[in-house]
Write a protein that binds this DNA or RNA. Structure first.
Length: 271
DNA sequence: AAAAGCTGCAACCGCTGCACT
DNA sequence: AAGTGCAGCGGTTGCAGCTTT
């Protein structure tokens, strides 16, 4: 037996909101403050809309503190770093970007940022292949153990789409290693070693320094949890412990911050 | 100028977590 | 402990506007 629908879908208006509907919703929220029951709101506000639709409209569009468009380079960096660390936790990522919604961030990533990083990563891979073709890199560095090589650039994730030796080489090559400039210029990094999973459906596998996927999930190509998240985190590469003390804040901090901000300041109607 | 293709984004869908009974 | 219902979330879709051919 399934759950009863939240509204009569056949008898509620769908699609784009009219200015009149926006006005009615805005007026209602401004008059009543905190919305405790979105399902009941449409009737009270005189709207022929699903409660979920009202909630989404308010959170993603009508809230007064929302910024639309025009993501800055700094915001790009933050999104990139957080996505790389935790995957598509859009609400958490958005909570670190004041005025941005999870929907905004998600759209921005899917339509723009992702392509940007694909291009960069493709460039990196090509460079790495060129290097390995031109030099017997592994033999020249064969005395370097994996632990040692990881220790030489501990603030970045291992792999980055390459093996460790290639990564080390690229990391020291400012021409080839363009993408990690994002990390270098960013004001923070994220350690997952201190992450406390926010729900029972998630667990942590620190050994690969990646957000875990549930059993049965598949990497179906570049994008489904595969790129750039897995790629950037080097899932196929040797385990490397990242020194937690190098992180400026932990994922647990982000989650608690998210809970405070995403569901408080930004996600809920609080005035 | 018009058709086709592409892009950006608002909105919807369905699932999960959690509070409450 | 189990059932119920809502809020919140991430994935996906639809479409308007823009660009290219």
């Amino acid at each position: 037996m399934g759950r009863a629908p939240c509204c009569d879908k056949a008898n509620v208006k769908r699609g784009p909101w009219s200015p009149e509907e926006d006005m009615a919703l805005k007026k209602y929220v401004e008059r009543h403050g905190i919305v405790e029951n979105w399902i009941a709101l449409p009737h009270k506000a005189g709207l022929n809309r699903c409660g979920k639709s009202c909630r989404l409209r308010w959170l993603n569009y009508l809230r007064p503190d929302i910024k639309h468009g025009g993501f800055t380079e700094e915001e790009d960096q933050i999104i990139y770093n957080l996505y790389k660390s935790m995957g598509s936790k859009w609400s958490v990522i958005a909570s670190h970007l004041p005025g941005r919604t999870d929907n905004d961030v998600k759209n921005y990533w899917n339509t723009k940022l992702k392509k940007k990083f694909i291009a960069t990563e493709t460039n990196l891979t090509t460079n790495a292949n060129n290097i390995s073709n031109h030099e017997n890199l592994s033999s020249s560095l064969s005395h370097v153990t994996k632990d040692e090589s990881s220790a030489s650039f501990p603030s970045m994730d291992p792999g980055f789409g390459h093996n460790l030796l290639e990564s080390q080489r690229l990391f020291t090559d400012p021409i080839s290693f363009s993408l990690p400039a994002f990390e270098e210029s960013s004001n923070f990094s994220v350690s997952q070693s201190t992450y406390d999973a926010p729900s029972s459906s998630l667990s942590m596998d620190n050994s690969y320094n990646t957000w875990p996927r549930s059993e049965g999930d598949e990497i179906d190509g570049f994008f489904s949890y595969g790129f750039p998240y897995d790629l950037l985190n080097g899932n196929d590469f040797p385990k490397v412990e990242v020194a937690s003390e190098l992180a400026d804040f932990s994922y647990a901090d982000m989650v608690s911050s998210s809970e405070t901000r995403a569901q408080g300041q930004f996600q809920s109607v609080t005035y």
